[in-house]
Every structure is written in C-alpha cells, then in structure tokens.
Amino acid sequence: MNLKFDRVASIVFLVLGILIIIESQKISESAYGSQIGPSTFPFVLGIVLIGLSILLFFETIRHQAMYKIVQEKEGGKSSNFKRFLIIFISAVAYAFLLEKLGYLITTFAFLLISFQTLERGKWVSSIIVAAAFSAIIYFGFVNVLGGSLPKFPL
C-alpha cells in the first residue's frame, strides 16, 4: 500500500474517465438509429470510472494514518531495482529483435543475460540451459508440431 501511488492512480483514472466520455462521443452512431449505439456502453463506464476514482481519492485522505503504518512496516525491504531493470530491458530488446534476428539467437541471448543477472558465474550450466531451452522449443515447435517461428536472418 502506497499513499502516493493510490493518489496518483485516482487522478489518472479520473482523467481517463473524462477522456473516455469525450472520446466515446466521437464514435459514429450506428445506422439503424437506435438510441443505444456503440457509444453507450463506454460512455456509462466512463461515468462509473470517474465516480470510483473520486471515491478512491477520498479513501486515501480518510485512511492516511493507516497508509503510514503500512509504509513503515514495508520500508525495510530491500529492492533489486537494478537486476529487474537489466532483465526488463533485455526482455524488451528480445521482443523487438525476435522477428529480425530469429527465435534461436534472441532466446539464447535473453536467457543467458537473465541467468547471469540473477546470479553471476556458473557460465557452463547457464549456457547449457539457455541453449537447451531455445533449441527444444524451436525444433519441437517447428519440426514436431509444425508451427512457425522466426528463422535465422540468413
């Protein structure tokens, strides 16, 4: 629980609700002239979302004391932001390069980087597991099950 997160979230959801109401008005009306068109449902949801986000904002004010207690309790935990960032960025690169470099190379590289980020050393077992996983998935899926995955670029 995090007071700042909840407050920001309530404002984001409020803005989102307003945007949805505006945007739903731009949806063209359906041809057969019924009042209940494709914009009705999103419009109603937008109103509900605005109501709920206002409610959430008031809750953050009302429960301020409780947030503080929870925060002090959770404050001592160490976070591993750096290793998360490395793995996440390599996952984004993996997704981006998958179609360009092929499944085998990208999967192997992603796994090896992530294994090493979580625990340094033990290169041999890391390489074996990464290679085995990419090869089994690729050849099993493409050759045995007849699916298709991006090949080597060459």
């Binding site: 793995i87 998958l98 999967t107 992603f110 979580l118």
Partner: peptide, 28 residues
C-alpha cells in the same frame, strides 16, 4: 534454482503469446 526458473517463465510467456498472435505488438 530461481535464477533458471524466472527467466524461463518470461521466455515461455513470450513464446506462448507470439506463437498464437504472431505480432510484436502483443509482445510489447
């Protein structure tokens, strides 16, 4: 070991979604 398990779950997720959707958009 967690160091193998966690990246492999990410890799399976990416494989699974790509194998059904075939778009990079879905991966992002």
């Amino acid at each position: 070991p967690k160091r193998f398990l966690l990246p492999i779950i990410i890799a399976i997720s990416i494989f699974g979604v790509y194998a059904v959707q075939y778009t990079t958009f879905d991966l992002f």
